[in-house]
């Protein structure tokens, strides 16, 4: 399965948020597409991103690298990158790499959009 990406803007209590809905497999082949999308959003001035990973079937370290790169970019603009994920097998990868301490991980897009901390 390939990677699917779609974005939409939602306004929350902290201001506008851009939700990036990701589906399919994020690996060494498809991760560059996600990287391009995140870079493009930041270049266009979207600094508060919510990456919805509920439709992701597979994530590897290349995908983690892209998310960390995205976080670095939004932080350079005082922005945020929040993840939405409830899938145990995906969460496990964040846990074993210690990235649960780096990314705020939410159980729903609403929760992520409304987060103001």
């Amino acid at each position: 399965m390939d990677l699917s990406l779609s974005t939409r803007n939602v306004s929350g209590p902290g201001g506008d948020r851009t939700v990036v809905e990701v589906g399919g497999e994020i690996d060494v082949y498809t991760a560059p597409k996600l990287r391009e999308q995140l870079v493009e959003l930041v270049n266009d001035g979207s600094y508060h991103l919510v990456v919805d990973m509920e439709g992701v079937d597979f994530l590897d370290s290349t995908g983690l690298g892209v998310l960390v790169g995205g976080l670095k970019r939004v932080r350079a603009h005082e922005g945020s990158l929040r993840l939405v994920c409830n899938q145990e097998r995906i969460l496990k990868i964040f846990r074993i790499t210690g990235l649960t301490k780096v990314f705020p991980i939410h159980t729903s897009v609403d929760e992520a959009v409304n987060a103001t901390d």
Binding site: D60, S61, L64, I96, T97
Partner: peptide
């Protein structure tokens, strides 16, 4: 760096 990330995932799994 990417190498080590991959290996870190493998060793964790």
């Amino acid at each position: 760096g990417e190498d080590e990330m991959g290996l870190a995932v493998i060793s964790g799994l």
